[in-house]
Structures are given as C-alpha cells and as structure tokens.
Write a protein that binds this DNA or RNA. Structure first.
Lengths: 333, 333
DNA sequence: CTGTTAGCGCTTTCAC
DNA sequence: GTGAAAGCGCTAACAG
C-alpha cells in the first residue's frame, strides 16, 4: 500500500493525498478528512525513506556519549537518555544511540543520517573535540557539567550548575547548628564544587580550614577513607558533604565503623542523587540534578534549531537539594 | 555530490559505480579501485535514504526496554545497550533506542523504519506482549532473565541462567568451611534463584532450613533488615547469598552494625555484578552476568536472522562467579 | 565486465 | 483547491 494506490482508491491525485497527509494548507477540509479516513482504513503509513529522500529531513537525532563507560557518566546517561528519547518522540523524532567509549569523531556518513546531535561530554572536552563530533554539519546540543563554554560556538549548550544547591545544603546544615562541615571529594582538576567550597562555607558565616577537605578517589572505599580521616580530626566536623553519592555511601560506612550514628552524631550530604542514594540507610540527603529536565531542555534546544531557530543557545540547569534522613540537628556541643 | 556526478567524473556508468561501491561481484579490480579512490577523493558517501528506499533495508535496529525505569532493569540496560550498539555497529547497523516505560506496542510506522528489534523484557512477559512489540513484522531477539520461553515463537531468545554460578558460589563457601548459608532475597514470584536455593544447598551436602531464607524488598535497607534477622538466629549462618548486589550491600551494613567483620566473621555473596559491587568495602564476591556477551549474542542472533537465517534460535547465557574480598574461610567453630 | 533504464514512494513546483 | 509531472539518489534487472 503506497500513496499511489491510496490516491487511486480515492480518485484523487497523489499530490493532494500528500498535501492532506502533511497538513499542508490549501486542501479542502472535506478532502483532508476523506484522505485521513481512507488512510486509516487501509492501514496506510507513508514510507519514511521515500519521504526522507525527497525532503532531506530524517527526523532522527543521535545521542552520543564518548566518555561513557566511566561510573559517573553511566549513572547520568541512562536517565538523561530516557528523557531525551521522550522529548524527541513528542516532536516526532527517533533517537539513535552511540555509546562507543572514546569514539571521538563522526564521519560524513554518520552525520548524513541524522538531523542533529545531543552530546554528553566531560567537563574537560575542548571545542575541537566537539567539532570533530558534529563535523560542523549538523546542529548539536552539548550537555556538560562544566560552566558555560569559554568559546563562541556553533552548538547549543546545557550546563549543570550545582553550586546554588550546594550552598543550600550548607545553609541547611548551618541552620541545624553545624559549625564544622567537611568536604569529601575526588581530586579531579575540573571539580568546581571543590574549588568553590571554601568560599561557600565562609559565605555561610563559618570558618574554613584546609584540613576539612579530604581529596580522594571515586570509589566507596575512597569515601570511607576520606571521611575517616576527617572524623578523626581533634575537632571533628559534625557534617560532611561528599562530591558524589558514592563517596557519601563510603562516608556512611565510616561513620558506622566509628560508632557514630547518622544523622545523630554526623550529618552526611551526597551529590548527584543517583538511584542508590534513596536506597541507602539512612537515605541520603543529596544535591540532586534533575536529569529529566536536563534531557528535555537539551532536546528542545536541538530540535528548535533543527526546525529553524537561527542561533544556538547556552542554558544552565540548576540542581536542587533533596532532604532525606542523613542530615539532622547538630547534637555536638 | 551524488553517484551520477561521481560516475561522470570517472567516465563510467552509475551502475558500475554502484556495483563497485557495494562490493558486488563482476567488477574489474581496476575499476573498483578507481571508483573507491575517486569516491574518497571527492568525499562521496552514498545517500543512505535513497539506498534504503530502493533496497528496502534500513540497516537499523531498535533496542526496546518497556520495563525500563525499575532500578534493576536500568543497571542492566546501560551495559547491555553498550554491547548491542557495538555489535550492531560492527555489522553496519545503527541502534535506535526506545526506553519509554510501559509502552507496550509498536505501530506499523515504528516497524517500517527498522530491520529488527532487540527486546529486554521482564521474566513475566507473555507471548502476546512480545508480539505486540514486534507486530509479527520484523525479526526480533528477546533478552530475559527467565527460563527459555514456554511457547514456540517467531522470535529468538537469549535467556540468562545464573543457577550454575550460584551453585559455584555455594561450592566456594562450602569449600571454605561454611555449613550454614543464608539467603537474602526479594520475594518476587518469578525468582528462580530463590526457588532453587534449597535444592542447591542440599546438593552441596548441607542441610537446609526455611528459617535461613529472608524474603525482603529490593532496597539496601531491605538487605540490612533481612541479613540482621538471619544473623540474630541462635545458630547464625556464617555466609549469606543475596539475590542482588544492592541487598548484599545492605547485608554488609548489617554485619558492620553487629560488629561482624567481613569476610572474617561472615562471608557475603552478591548477585548481578553491578558496578557498585566492585566499589563496595569489602568488594563483593558476586554472581556476575556477562552483559557484554549477552548483548553481543542477542545482536548476532538478530542480525543473522535479518540477513537470512531461516529460523529463530533460543540460547542461554550462563553467569560466572567473581570472587572478591567479601568471602573467606569460615572461622566459626 | 559494463551501460542503460526502470523504478523505489514520496514531495513539490507549476499549471489550471 | 487539485492534477500532472519532474525529480530526490540509488539499485538491480536486462542487454550487450
């Protein structure tokens, strides 16, 4: 069943059928109705490849995550992918997925089949790396955890800024009477949270000492080790903020080992709100990134551009604090 | 740049160019070489949509996970998706992703754009549910954690059977001197491991008592609770096997709380080998599902069928035991 | 081994 | 508002 047969069936031309099917103007309401009805009756659906061939539009976007494979990237990926797919579907686009870790460039053929790209990249990605993915041939939206790009670009950006929510977490803790708040975090060079932490602490009216920061790796054991060091300090912190929920999980273990109850003797705040955070015992208070929003905003930016928006946009998504059971009033003198 | 221009450039016909590009027989080696060279030189790549239109082949498969959104499904999904994508790419196919939870049927148009489907479904999925996804129109491979399907089907299956590896885990523990091994697991109706556990224990030469099983939920706290109950038994188990790594994490916490060292006083075995398992402290010994293999086997089955294999196949993937630091010799009298 | 040609199924001018 | 017809870029059948 193709458009020719359908037209024959209706005794009208294929041109008119096509116009009716595509909601083009200048089709009589009656004709349109008849066409739609018949199409449904005969189970006709336009051949997407023929349509693509003639229009040059694929109604297809690709989600790429060249850094996929790292623990953190994966937790993000799946949730973001879900909302990107959803947002795309709502506007008639399907989603191609490319996860191959480390694959850092696209061929012309790769780009010919899609109308645009959503790129999830590490905060350290350079303009060149991004360009080698888009080939400067298709619209793209870049999702990254860094600040807005230091360069003008042909691509849209959605950046995640968790600092306001980290401040909120600190304020929560201060409000609960905590005066010494420690930081457990990966020593990654690009960590904005780590860099801003001392300032945020001071802005909250507390004093900051460098000994309150434990720079660690990314595993649970690292969080355990980092937290233990802080908790063994002469004047130990009564609250800990960890750079990731995984590290916070380790901090929870450390507290347990030292016989400290959470949140009774120690409050712990995580970061990211991975699924495990809600499942932990006690459930983690954490700086949550709204990945659903992230995906839909990124996708909207991309599709707008595909469908005519003239210039790329740069947007920022803010995180929010999710308060669960791992934080509470400071009970230490 | 299209095939006509390319042909003109070479002073040969488009037919010959097409044949050369598609590695068809009956093209002189010299011509082929010239064509390929010129194509590269001019940056020519065949228009995939024109090709699809005329051949009716899309070189596109779709990965669907209608149950996506549940914790467990997601941990699997991302790793499996990675290997499906890789396997598909190696054979010239791209991967469409559809995660929309609960979306349990495909339209004709959905199926027109793909050559086949990889379906990740829950063990309780019925033949009808699967059929409503494939529409009986395209080849499909179903990945599920259940036993091979109880019905003859038009689709291929890749089933995961972890029982042999669970047996292996039990044998490891027995070899280490453990005589009482507890089970911490979700009370899901479809849990094969739970059902087979008593038999496996007996086959290992131990005695089984129903009090050694704690049927719980799926969160860390459930694992904690379940393990605590077992460890408070008069004649407590010296080893615990948990149905999921998440539950095992909870068991680890419970041991800590009770002052039991792992693996000194208690051995703990997880199940699934999620990333977190390796990060736990101590790192979890666990029944690992090789999701990479799962994805590639499933994809191979699908592509074979797309490319001509006459009948669907049913395969089983076995898990394997990964021994880490959470298991050790039994030190209890 | 190569050239010619008829489509694949649709959209889109251009007339009317 | 509708019809006729020219492609979109490619493959494949048929001749040679």
């Amino acid at each position: 069943m193709n458009i020719v047969e359908l037209a024959k069936e209706l005794n009208i031309s294929t041109g008119t059928v096509s116009r009716a099917l595509n909601d083009r103007a200048e089709v009589s309401p009656d004709t349109r109705r008849r066409v739609l009805e018949k199409a449904r009756e005969l189970g006709f659906t336009p051949n997407p490849n023929a349509r693509r061939l003639v229009t040059g539009r694929n109604h297809l976007i690709r989600l790429e995550c060249p850094d996929s494979g790292s623990l953190l990237a994966d937790y993000f990926l799946i949730q973001t992918a879900r909302s990107v797919e959803e947002a795309a579907a709502n506007r008639g686009y399907e989603l191609l997925l490319r996860l191959r870790a480390g694959r850092r460039n696209s061929t012309k053929a790769d780009l010919d089949v899609v109308d645009g790209l959503v790129l999830i990249v590490s905060p350290t990605a350079t303009a060149q790396e991004i360009e080698s993915l888009t080939g400067n041939r298709v619209p793209a939206t870049v999702i990254c955890g860094a600040e807005p790009p230091p360069y003008e670009g042909a691509v849209s950006y959605v950046c995640v800024d968790t600092l306001p929510a980290v401040r909120e977490a600190i304020e929560l803790l201060v409000g609960q009477g905590h005066r010494r708040i420690g930081y457990v975090g990966s020593g990654l060079p690009d960590c904005r949270v780590r860099g801003a932490f001392p300032r945020l602490i001071r802005e909250a009216g507390l004093e900051w000492e460098e000994e309150l920061a434990a720079d660690t790796g990314v595993a649970i054991a690292d969080g355990h080790r980092g937290a233990r060091r802080l908790l063994n300090l002469p004047d130990r912190p009564t609250a800990l903020l960890a750079r990731t929920d995984v590290l916070a999980l380790g901090a929870l273990q450390a507290a347990r080992d030292l016989g400290l109850s959470v949140p009774g003797d120690l409050s712990v705040v995580g970061h990211d709100d991975i699924e495990m955070a809600a499942l932990a015992a006690p459930a983690l208070t954490t700086v949550a990134i709204d990945m659903e929003r992230l995906g839909s905003v990124a996708t909207a930016a991309l599709l707008d551009r595909i469908e005519g928006a003239d210039s790329p946009v740069v947007q920022t998504i803010h995180a929010h604090l999710v308060v669960r059971q791992s934080t509470g009033p400071c009970r230490v003198a």
